[in-house]
Each structure stands twice: as structure tokens, then as C-alpha cells.
Design a protein around this nucleic acid. Structure first.
Lengths: 300, 300
DNA sequence: GCGACTTATACAGTTGCCGTATCAGTTCGA
DNA sequence: TCGAACTGATACGGCAACTGTATAAGTCGC
């Protein structure tokens, strides 16, 4: 049995007239007669009650009509879905992200992506950088929002966002009265700082900045995630240098001030498996780049 | 697009090998290659990732596979359903029945029918005889269990059950002490009787029986349904002659006793529209006849 | 680097679908 | 009552599309 037979059958069932049905099907009446009787023979079921003058559905025909329509609809849906899938408009996408991105980049990307691709089910995993690398390798997530670099030949990444570091101070701290903080004034402050770990550059960036400005920071506390660092600052333990987007966290008890000196860039990147040809991933990367461009231009 | 293409596609998606897929499809490899690339061209979607040596599904192909399988399954279901419909194994059937049959014939018929034809959804309507005739004419029910005769040329009926009348007595009535009641002993009793209505024969049957036995019953109360009559008897208002199957009602406070004399037959019939060619109706009639035959032979 | 393997292409034969012509039966009006 | 119009079925020829055989082209493994 072929879909063509079903299309003929449904049309005839609607018209109950071979001539008109044939016309609607852009064909002549004889082949339609043949096709229908062929279908009946194939099924072993009389679908139409035919006098020489009138056509009516049998009970079996009525039952078949419902299913035939459903079959045709499902076939159309299959085509539609395949085409949308190729354009990356359907499927699922697991996204790994650093807690630090959850307040700035991620929500913007998610808003744009879910708006443009409502057929894609998103799975969100808040993961640290090493967890993300592992998840990407294992295929647990398809893309990750993280800090470059990504030292893995299987993975590819692209820096999408650059922002300066700012000083995070307890709200009551005297330096919070300044509009811009000179680096020198931090020389005697206790620091909350990212730990030195292989693959994590923040420790080196912050240390390098301090050394360049003539002092070695006194480490009061280490923490390896930005939101943890900011939380510790809000508790009054010390000051910290954090990416400017940390201000978006909206945490009470913390003041953020730009530095007078130029800081290194805090970079955010998106990473994916090098071999991944998924159109959903491609679409996500496109959205991410577009959103990041807007964020960058709005910041400058 | 045709189902053949889908069958080819699904098989190839399962084998991921043109040669083996072609073998499973009882064809050679070249036409399969052509059919698949034709399908891809028609959809405008690459379904397979093909190197010269390996075949893999694309993401769009995976999405299409799911729908293609569903489409084929639905098509198979359509065929199955049409064939079962022609055998009367699916559909719906609205049954009208007298309250009197609800305790004896109807449950037996329903049990057998729903067992033999689980695909048929039953709709049950308890209706009086004139209501049933109207419902049958209007097509609200396809079949009816009722009292013959059926005075309508559009309808056909068949008597399926004959049973004697018995006396229904208040449980405390002196005559309840007898094993069989002589008709004469009812001469002075107050009677609960079916009203005289055109098309209803019970009134005439009961009156005829009494007259034949030498008395005219004194009418204490009229009621036009058997279960109402029995209810009134149980309230002590009088005695009544009712079909033997009324005993199945299981109503407290009523005793049933056979009569010493032969009574007219209380007949039950099944009726349907003369033009109705529904296989479901045919199947129901068959079941009804079979069940009635068992009931009749068990009673004699 | 050669052989085996796998998919794509070329070409010819056949099947099967479609259109034209026509038949057969029914309905309706004169 | 008879014929004209209408409707579905059948006959037959043409053509498109599918299938099979033969073969090319590219890849993997030894």
C-alpha cells in the first residue's frame, strides 16, 4: 500500500463521486476507479458501497478513512520535522555553564535561543570548568560556557566576551567611597583570590596585575568560583578582583568599583566538540555570538 | 513521498549499509541508492552522512526516522482496522433495552458480546418500548431489546426468548405458601396490571388469561414497566402476573410462584433497522440469538 | 600499494500508472 | 415508455519510473 492510494481514497471519501474526486486529484476518472478497486483488493476490504450511480462509504471504509487521514498527517509531520531538524529547529541541547555566567551572558543567550528555536528542549547544567571539559568529552553536554583556554584537541572554543576586572569591596569599606580605585590602595588589603590550578588563568591574571602595580596581594581566602568569591567579600573577609559582570549578581553588602589602571581582560568562551555537526549546536553558537556582540558593544 | 520510500529509509537506517538493507528489502543495491537520494532530494534534507565506505544518520535523519516509523505503523494500523471493521470487530453500538431485560437477557448478551468483540464500544440506553421504536427510527440506537410486535416497516425484529408468566405476590401473602397457584385463587385479589396501550400486548395477554380462567381481575394499580409492577407488589398493594425472568430482579418482599395453568408466552425480541448493513449489528444479532438459545434450553 | 569492500552512476528492460476511448447501467424528463 | 444525460467500469496504448546488470570510483586494511 502506498500513500498515493490513501490520498485517492481520502479524496474520494470526501467527494463520494469519482468524477469530482478525480478532478480534485488532477487526474481522470478511470485510473481513480482502478486505484480504488486495487486498494480494496489489496486490503481485502470493500471500502465503498457502489451502485452504478451512487458512492457511499462502508463501515469499514469509515474506519479506514480516519486512520488514512492520520497516516497522511503523520507523513506530512515527518517531512516537516526532518526539514526543521536540518535547520536546527528541533531536538535537544544540553548546555554546561559556569555559575558566573548565570547572571549575565546565559540568560540573554537562553532568551534569544528559546525564542528563535522553540522546538529545542534545553537542558542546563551548572558545572565548574573541569566538570564542563569532562562533560563535553563524554557528550553529556553539547556546548559549554566557560573561561578559556580549553586545552583539549577534541574540543573547540571561541572567545565571545571580554570584560575588565573590577574591585569587589564590602559595602562599608572606605574605598567604596571612591569612584575609581587606584591599584596601590589595595596593597594592604586582605584578598579573596582564585586558587592557582592548572588550566585556570584567573589566579595568574590577578596576581600579575597586582605585581605589575607594585605589591603582592595578601591572600585571606581562596575560592574557585566567582560567585563564591563575591559571597566571601560580602561577608567582609576581604576584597577581590572579579570580572565586571559579577555586578549583575545583585548580591547585597558588596560594592563594585572600577580600577584606575587598565586591567587584563576576563574572557568568556563557548566550547563544543570539534566533530559535532549538529545543526542545533551551530544554531546555538550563532545565537551566542550575536548576543555576545550586543553585550560587548553595549559595554563599550 | 510514498510509503515505499519510508520502508527503504527505515531499513537502511537500521542496517546503515546499502548492501544489507537492499538484501533485506529483496532488491539490489543500486535502486536503493537511487531511492534514498531521491527521497533526500524530494525532502530537501540530507538524511544520511555518507562517506564512500560508511553510512550514518544525520540529525535530521534521526528525527525523520522516528516519524517514518510512526507513519508506517499508522498505515499498518489503518489496514488492520479496516479489516477488523469489516468483520464487525470494531466500532460502536448503541443498544436500547427495556428495564425488564436488564436483569436477565441483557447482562448475558453484553458479557458474551464484549468478550467476543472487545473493540466495539457499547452505549446502553434504558428506554421504554415507544422510546425504543423512536430511537431506532432516528438512528439513536442500532438495536433494541423489547417486546414484540414491532409495527414499523422500517424496522425488523426477531423473537428470541419465550417464557411463561408467573404470579408475583407480597412475600407475606397466604398464597405464597402454595407451590403452584391455581388461577381461580387470584379471582378476588387486587391486581397490579400493565395499562392498555396501542402496541403493548401485555395488558391483553394478562386480561385474556384471567378471563379464560373465569374472572375479571380487579385493577388496583397500573404500571407500564415490569420492574415498576414488581415494586408495587413488594409494597403489598396487590398481586401481578409478570414474565418469569422478573424473578432475577432480586427484589425483597416479593414471592414468585408458577401458575397451575398454562400461561401465554411472554416474548422478548431484538429489533434493528431493516436497511442497517453494519457488521457490528450483525455480530450483535448473532450473539443475541446464541445467548437466547442457551437461556431457552436451560429454562426447559 | 594492492586487493577487497562499499557506494554511485550508466544503461537497458519491465512494470505499472495514467489518459483516451468506450461500454454498461441508472436516473429523469418528455 | 423511450431516450438523453450522467456515472462508474473496462480496454488499450503510451510513457514514466522503478528495478536489475554492469561498471566506475573511492576507501580501508593488510
Amino acid at each position: 500500500m502506498e500513500l498515493r492510494s490513501l490520498r485517492y481514497f481520502v479524496t474520494l471519501a470526501e467527494e463520494l463521486h469519482f468524477g469530482r474526486a478525480a478532478k480534485r486529484l488532477s487526474m481522470t476518472q478511470p485510473p481513480l476507479s482502478q486505484a480504488i478497486s486495487g486498494l480494496e483488493r489489496e486490503l481485502g476490504v470493500r471500502l465503498f458501497e457502489r451502485t452504478r450511480r451512487r458512492v457511499a462509504l462502508t463501515h469499514a471504509g469509515a474506519a479506514f478513512l480516519e486512520e488514512a487521514r492520520a497516516t497522511l498527517a503523520r507523513a506530512a509531520k515527518a517531512v516537516e520535522l526532518a526539514q526543521r531538524a536540518e535547520r536546527g529547529e528541533v531536538g535537544r541541547l544540553a548546555i554546561g555553564y559556569l555559575a558566573a555566567t548565570a547572571y549575565s551572558l546565559l540568560p540573554l543567550v537562553l532568551r534569544d535561543f528559546s525564542h528563535g528555536f522553540p522546538g529545542v528542549r534545553l537542558e542546563l547544567r551548572e558545572l565548574t570548568l573541569p566538570q564542563q571539559l569532562e562533560a563535553l568529552r563524554r557528550g553529556d553536554v553539547e556546548v559549554g560556557l566557560l573561561r578559556p583556554p580549553v586545552p583539549d584537541a577534541e574540543l573547540e572554543f571561541e572567545t565571545i566576551l571580554e570584560e575588565p576586572f573590577v574591585v569587589a569591596l564590602p559595602a562599608s569599606h572606605p574605598l567604596a567611597a571612591l569612584k575609581r580605585v587606584p591599584a596601590q590602595r589595595l596593597a594592604s588589603e586582605p584578598f579573596v583570590i582564585f586558587p592557582r590550578q592548572p588550566g585556570l588563568v584567573y589566579h595568574d591574571l590577578v596576581m600579575g596585575f597586582c605585581l605589575k602595580n607594585g605589591f603582592t596581594p595578601r591572600v585571606a581566602q581562596e575560592a574557585n568560583q566567582t560567585h563564591t568569591v563575591v559571597g566571601i567579600v560580602s561577608a567582609g573577609i576581604g576584597v577581590a578582583l572579579v570580572p565586571a559582570s559579577a555586578q549583575k549578581m545583585g548580591l547585597a553588602g558588596v560594592a563594585f568599583r572600577p580600577l584606575r589602571e587598565a586591567t587584563p581582560a576576563s574572557r568568556t568562551a563557548v566550547a563544543w566538540r570539534r566533530l559535532d555537526s549538529s545543526p542545533v549546536v551551530k544554531a546555538f553558537l550563532d545565537v551566542t555570538r550575536r548576543v555576545a556582540k550586543q553585550v560587548n558593544s553595549a559595554a563599550s
